[in-house]
Design a binder for these strands. Structure first.
Lengths: 189, 189
DNA sequence: TCAAAAGTAGACCGACTTGTCTACCACGGA
DNA sequence: TCCGTGGTAGACAAGTCGGTCTACTTTTGA
């Protein structure tokens, strides 16, 4: 199954760096060193290759973030570790991740605005998974379920905002600023 | 100058709804009812039409937001009004704005990741303008310049995060949740 | 009134798009 | 040995891409 994974890896890299509609099938094939028929043996269309790329990116990012957060004690420290993790990401200090070009899921939804499109939906799934990860840790530092949900939501918005600011404005310290705000929100509870 | 503006309006609408690379010149021309030569009399390339569309969107969004915020007393009330404004935007209750498809500037940067590209830079300019608007009002409720900068930054991240959450996840209450968090950050100062 | 300016329609260019198809090759197991 | 599997290379189809060009018409202003 090496060829299929080569295709997904190459497609994801090119889609992430240049946008999905800007990259043609032929370019993916050439850079992956795979024949066209092989692609259409594994995928029924470009769109299904895009879906596979989104799914792959979901697994990559989620497991990376989960590992980073779980390297610290559950609760407050893990939540703050998230901001250190994305800070390393923004500054390309995370060898497991390709060069920072914003959030692939946000970018993909910009190209597939229809919320019913499979690609858009798959991106929403990723964000929901990350939110659940945050909520799990938020429950360790909050008294009630409702409070945990609120805290997780606040941290989620700060993280997404930092990603946008880092990418659009090139602010490489966006994650640290978000962390400073976040740390003030966790303690008072 | 009616034709030129028609082109920019139509291009912006199509680019915003479907993404920039997904829309061809011919489609813009057909929907605008304008001949191809007319386009190339006013713009030297598709890219320069894209730049004009970004600039037009900047003016549209900024003046809309500024008007909404200035309709309330400067400072705390204006800052909170921002969240009500984007809430109306998310829920398509703002007749001056087309149907919500996320932030055009974030989406555009997803398609032009290179921070040196004119389109990317123009998007960064828009975000900086909005930030300055926030900072101006933050200075009314903060004691120091540094505190104002921090508050404006926090509110900015919350707003960007809410836009992302509303678009990717379809959470139409994202702005209200962000407002609730924000209101807790303004008062204690 | 008349000429310049600005717009239209549409052919045309070369390159590229997704996707199909044919022909061939290399390897692994019966 | 022989066949099936999975791959390669590349032609091909039908259409679109950004962009140029010609020829014609409409508008505008002096």
């Amino acid at each position: 199954m090496g060829r299929k994974q080569d295709l997904v890896d190459t497609a994801l890299r090119l889609f992430y760096e240049h946008g999905i509609h800007a990259i043609g099938i032929n370019q993916v094939l050439q850079e992956a060193g795979v024949a066209k028929q092989t692609l259409y043996n594994h995928f029924e269309s470009k769109d299904s290759l895009v879906e596979a790329a989104v799914e792959h990116r979901d697994n990559l990012i989620f497991s990376w973030l989960e590992t980073r957060m779980n390297s610290r004690p559950a609760g407050e420290e893990a939540l703050l570790e998230m901001f250190d993790a994305v800070h390393d990401w923004f500054n390309n200090r995370e060898p497991a991740l390709p060069r920072f070009c914003g959030c692939f899921f946000i970018n993909a939804c910009g190209e597939y605005s229809d919320p019913e499109h499979p690609v858009h939906k798959r991106c929403a799934v990723h964000k929901a998974r990350v939110f659940e990860l945050l909520k799990m840790h938020a429950e360790k530092v909050c008294c009630s379920q409702a409070e945990a949900e609120q805290l997780a939501n606040a941290l989620f918005l700060l993280k997404e905002g930092a990603i946008v600011k880092a990418h659009v404005e090139g602010d490489l310290d966006a994650a640290l600023k978000a962390k400073a705000i976040a740390s003030g929100m966790i303690l008072p509870h």
